[in-house]
Amino acid sequence: MSFKHLDTDTLAQWLDHEEEVTLVDIRDPVSFADAHVVGATHLDNVSLTHFLESAPKQQPLVVVCYHGHSSQGAAGWLAEQGFSDVYSLDGGFTAWQQRHPEWVGQ
């Protein structure tokens, strides 16, 4: 299993059309609290076990980091945990915030 890359415009289309998607943000807690993709869950070592037990494995899963680099490793690992449709958001939250500020929450 591996992950795919997802561009910010495609994710925005999914959100605009209310597609079923799981969003996880792996940035530090302060950055996540300041701003994140609307609907995202903060994923860290504390929340990981609960997430693995409760998240739907067949639903698309999008991993967000700062610039789209760390999310690739996390997406690959999550795919190995049984998630069937995993994506790394290209450009990360930085690109997301610039291109789709209407989808940024706190």
Rank of each mutant, 00 (worst) to 15 (best):
S2R: 11
F3G: 01
K4R: 13
K4L: 14
H5C: 01
H5W: 02
H5V: 01
D7A: 07
D9W: 10
A12H: 07
A12D: 02
Q13I: 07
W14V: 01
L15S: 02
L15C: 02
D16H: 08
H17Q: 13
E18I: 00
E19T: 01
E19C: 06
V21E: 04
V21C: 02
V21M: 03
T22P: 07
L23D: 08
L23Q: 03
V24L: 08
D25A: 11
I26P: 10
I26M: 14
R27F: 00
D28E: 14
P29K: 13
P29N: 04
V30M: 13
V30K: 14
A33K: 15
D34I: 08
D34N: 12
H36S: 13
H36D: 09
V37L: 15
V38D: 04
G39H: 15
T41W: 06
T41M: 15
T41L: 12
H42W: 13
L43P: 04
L43R: 01
D44H: 02
D44N: 14
N45I: 04
S47Q: 12
L48E: 12
L48Q: 13
L48W: 03
T49A: 12
T49K: 06
F51K: 01
L52A: 02
S54D: 07
S54N: 13
A55E: 09
A55T: 05
K57Y: 08
K57W: 09
K57F: 02
K57L: 04
P60N: 08
L61I: 03
L61K: 09
V62E: 05
V62I: 11
V62D: 02
V63A: 10
V63T: 08
C65S: 14
C65G: 10
Y66I: 07
H67L: 11
G68A: 13
S71A: 09
G73T: 10
G73S: 02
G73N: 08
A74D: 00
A74E: 11
A74K: 07
A75V: 07
G76K: 08
G76R: 04
G76C: 09
W77G: 00
W77Y: 11
L78A: 05
E80A: 14
G82S: 02
F83L: 00
S84D: 09
S84A: 15
V86R: 11
S88A: 15
D90H: 01
G91K: 02
F93D: 01
T94L: 13
A95H: 03
W96I: 10
Q98A: 12
Q98W: 11
Q98H: 15
Q98N: 10
H100D: 03
H100S: 00
H100G: 07
P101D: 05
E102Y: 12
E102D: 14
E102N: 14
W103Y: 15
V104T: 15
G105I: 04
Q106E: 11
